[in-house]
Write a protein that binds this DNA or RNA. Structure first.
Lengths: 199, 199
DNA sequence: GATAATACAAAACGAATGTTCAGTATAAAT
DNA sequence: ATTTATACTGAACATTCGTTTTGTATTATC
């Protein structure tokens, strides 16, 4: 059990990579299996041998992407000391990760589509919850350490997530530099809005 | 030129109303012309007689919706004195208007889709610009009158728009009450972040 | 070496869907 | 009254696209 499994994994990787590039460029719906076939040289049947369905393929990519994001963040987190700085760091990574390896657009489209099967919806919900929880822990820490004024961390976490979502959308047509500036300002406002004041 | 034109307008209205309901419930892609046919009793050919295409029909609805929103706001604007209060008022109207007459979901989906023709994209861009400009004027007024600390109003306007977009997304699965609370908190943070401080 | 499992190809399926078009009836214009 | 324009029908068109199926070569298993 060696040569075959290896070859298989390589093929799966190749399909995943091609699909990722296509979904990123064209969006989810606009990318057809046929195009993935053309890009990989693999056959339709083979793609369906490796992935349950188009949605399954996409979800596979999203999961990979999300895991990679968290891995990257954990590597960089130590670079930032205050929660404030961490937030700016997160924004920076979002922009770099999302605008360079951007399944973002496709993900957005996918999340908003209504046709998704029940299992798909579950996994999406999980992901959003993970994000909010991630934010919540970060903010809670900031509150506990007196950096922010004590408020409902859960709700702030949702607001922060929404802010990121919105900024992502607003910066879709701008370049990286402008996006960085926009995110920075947004977080500035957000932080200024929840910061602990000595007065 | 009377009886016929009248009948024609009524039909167009009927199609528009049915389409609006369907797009709202099911989203843009998920709503087929066939379903609009079933809902109206009109024929496919007739729908294409009144509207250039499915996209054209949707855009027609979006335009109507946006105009109505502005009309409603202008009626209510006088109720709020400070810019701060106006922002809360806007949020309230967004939630009520958007969650009750919600083309929001479909609009979101539509805006994110990549396949849109060039003219479509133009009209969408215009709409976003209108929104940002609307925000900008509001914020500029708040700055001029000393309510907010002087900052880049243009960028704040974009952030505010993004915040609304994000909140809309985050409150998709909640009820009106929770949505109101979320928006309120979000604007609280935003205002707190840009407010003029005496200290 | 025979059998079974795996990786892949190619074609066909099938169903959904937006759009067009030839035709018809009704109202307006001349 | 005849012609013309308008509102509308219903069926056919034309694709696109995700998925299934059938078949085959290669590799692992016994």
């Amino acid at each position: 059990m060696n040569k075959k499994k290896l070859q298989s994994e390589q093929t799966k990787r190749k399909v995943a990579d091609a699909a990722k590039a296509l979904f990123s460029q064209k969006g989810y719906k606009a990318t057809s299996i046929e195009e993935i076939v053309e890009a990989t040289g693999s056959s339709k049947g083979n793609i369906y041998y490796h992935f349950k369905s188009k949605e399954g393929l996409f979800l596979y990519l999203i999961d990979e992407w999300d895991l990679e994001w968290e891995r990257n963040w954990k590597e960089r987190e130590a670079l930032y000391k205050t929660t404030r700085d961490k937030l700016f760091g997160i924004a920076e990574q979002i922009i770099l990760d999302d605008l360079n390896h951007p399944l973002t657009k496709a993900a957005d489209e996918f999340f908003n589509n209504e046709e998704k099967g029940s299992d798909i919806e579950e996994r999406i919900d999980e992901m959003v919850k993970r994000h909010v929880e991630f934010n919540r822990e970060l903010l809670q820490k900031g509150i506990d350490e007196g950096e922010f004024s004590p408020k409902n961390a859960e709700q702030l976490a949702v607001i922060l997530e929404g802010l990121f979502v919105g900024m992502s959308r607003m910066s879709r047509k701008t370049n990286t530099e402008n996006a960085l500036q926009l995110y920075h300002s947004a977080i500035d406002v957000f932080l200024n809005g929840i910061i602990a004041r000595s007065s």
